[in-house]
Each structure stands twice: as structure tokens, then as C-alpha cells.
Design a protein around this nucleic acid. Structure first.
Length: 273
DNA sequence: AACAAGACCTGCATGC
DNA sequence: TGCATGCAGGTCTTGT
């Protein structure tokens, strides 16, 4: 579910609400996430203070005292929500962290593609899923010439390249489609056939789009919610994603959908070449 | 080595 | 109503 803007929205909300709180008690109700929750997870988290909430690409990093980090990835369907009204637990509330202000942090993930891991801070950078990640689009290294060079070296489509978190981190299926629309490039274009100017347009569109989506608190299609269970607002600004058959906002033409590798791509055949 | 496709898992919408 | 199918924001593994 969440791509970089959604994870950033959750980070900002949780930082405000849980920074400085101590975890008093932890219930692990279902360990079966993508990486099984370790049997010592609850004991590792209980008693720790949440010192800060950071983000790396789509990973939430909850900094704890004693130099530990609670890493949360929300997969496709995960939510990490602060609950202060004592509402009953729901199906798929897999982890509940009780806080010293009476609120709870609940990790809810129906599809269980997410993960929840605690590591010593010193081991964070070497942890394989993080170590593999490329810079995100806000990194100064990510610019037109850099993307052009990477694209020239690839025989994949530009969409596949941008979705690859080891090439650039943080984009998923929604924002890749939107970036390519803004850059006027079809998702199926071979990366190596892009010109330097198209690479430049894509490289500029990535941080601009993500920033805009963050300002709107992310995109809520069905189940994404921020750290307070609120919807984002960027879905109203999508130009192609999920708009098959609807009119292009620029030219009025019909948005098309194609499928490759079990993923949908959306584009305007007139505006994107 | 690079790449495309499959696998993982549940829930929902749709159509018969 | 029930059942089958297709589809979903991600990432890891498999096989070519």
C-alpha cells in the first residue's frame, strides 16, 4: 500500500504523537509477517522509550533508547496507528504496543506482507533490506544525468527501472505511473531508448510529485491511513493511476491500462510517447 | 548477471 | 445465495 509519501505522512504524525513515550507492554498476536516476528520481540520493545521516528524509503524507523531501532515496513496493506480511544482490537491487529500515556500503537496488516524487526542501531545500515536500497529521489545524487546513465545501461522498461528500489528508492506503482505521465514518457518505453532530456524530465518529476503528494498527506485508495487513521488527499490529484477509460486532464484522451508482470500500468496515449 | 515471472496473503468487487 | 475470477499500494525468490 504505502509508497514514500504515505510512509512520510505516517512518520510525521507518529513523531508528533509518540516521541518521548515509553512502551509499557507489548502484545504480539500474530507473528506471521513477511519476516516472522521474533519470539523475543515483545521483550525487546517493552520498557523502551520511542526517542524519534525516522524513515528510509518506505521503511519506518522508530528510534528507541538503549540504541535500538524498531523497523516497520507496511507492505501492501499495513497500517501503524496510534489508538487513544480504547476501541476494541480488530482482526489483523498483529502487534499492540501499550504506551505510558494510555494510548496504543497497533500494527494492522491483513495481507501480512509487512515486517517488524528490532535491531541495535549499529546494525541498521548493514541490515540487508536497507543496505540494498538506492538513494531516494530527494537525494542530490538523483538527477537527470545520473538517471540517464542508469537508463542507458538497462534493457528493461523505464517503469521497471524506477520501481526497482535498488535503482531509486521510494516509488511504487502509483507514483511511478504518475511520474511518467508528468514526464510524457510511456511506462513501456525501454529505458535505454530514453534521451537525456526525457531522463531529465523524469528525474525532476520524481521529487516534485512526491513532495506534492506528501503535502496532501498521501494517496488513500482503499485502506491506506496515516498514523491517526485519517485518509490522505492526493487520490483526487492522480492523473493516470486507476483512471482507465477516463479523460486525460491535459488532452481529454482516454487513459489506457496495460498489464505486465501482474502489475497495471496507466498512461495517456496522446501525452506520453 | 540481468531480468521477467511467480510467490507470498487476505479482502473486495464483479459476474455468472 | 454461492462460487469463481480478477485485482490490490511491495518485496523476495525462482528460473531462464
Amino acid at each position: 500500500m504505502p509508497e514514500l509519501p504515505e510512509v512520510e505522512t505516517i512518520r510525521r504524525g507518529l513523531r508528533r504523537l509518540v516521541r518521548g513515550r515509553r512502551v509499557t507492554r507489548v502484545e504480539v498476536r500474530d507473528r506471521r509477517l513477511r519476516i516472522p516476528v521474533r519470539t523475543d520481540f515483545a521483550a525487546d520493545l517493552a520498557g523502551r522509550v520511542i526517542v524519534d521516528v525516522d524513515r528510509r524509503a518506505k521503511y519506518l524507523l522508530l528510534r528507541l533508547d538503549a540504541d535500538r531501532v524498531w523497523i516497520v515496513h507496511l507492505g501492501m496493506s499495513g497500517k501503524l496507528i496510534r489508538v487513544a480511544d480504547g476501541r476494541p482490537l480488530a482482526r489483523h491487529d498483529h502487534i499492540v504496543a501499550h504506551l505510558d500515556d494510555g494510548a496504543e500503537l497497533r500494527l494492522h496488516d491483513p495481507r501480512r506482507f509487512g515486517l517488524s524487526v528490532i535491531l541495535p542501531a549499529t546494525e541498521l545500515a548493514a541490515w540487508p533490506p536497507l543496505r540494498r536500497l538506492a538513494p531516494d529521489p530527494f537525494d542530490p545524487r538523483f538527477d537527470g544525468p545520473w538517471l540517464y546513465a542508469r537508463a542507458r545501461a538497462s534493457r528493461r522498461t523505464i517503469k521497471d527501472l524506477l520501481m526497482d528500489q535498488t535503482e531509486v528508492a521510494g516509488l511504487g506503482n502509483i507514483y511511478v505511473n504518475e511520474v511518467l505521465y508528468r514526464a510524457g514518457v510511456r511506462p513501456g518505453r525501454r529505458a535505454c531508448r530514453l534521451g537525456a532530456a526525457a531522463a531529465e524530465r523524469i528525474a525532476r518529476a520524481c521529487p516534485a510529485l512526491l513532495e506534492e503528494a506528501i503535502r496532501w498527506c498521501g494517496t488513500s485508495l482503499s485502506d491506506y491511513r496515516d498514523g491517526e487513521d485519517r485518509e490522505g488527499g492526493f487520490q483526487a490529484h492522480l492523473c493516470v493511476y486507476g483512471r482507465t477509460g477516463e479523460a486525460c486532464r491535459a488532452c481529454g484522451g482516454q487513459i489506457r491500462r496495460t498489464r505486465a508482470g501482474n502489475r497495471s500500468s496507466f498512461y495517456c496515449p496522446r501525452c506520453q510517447k
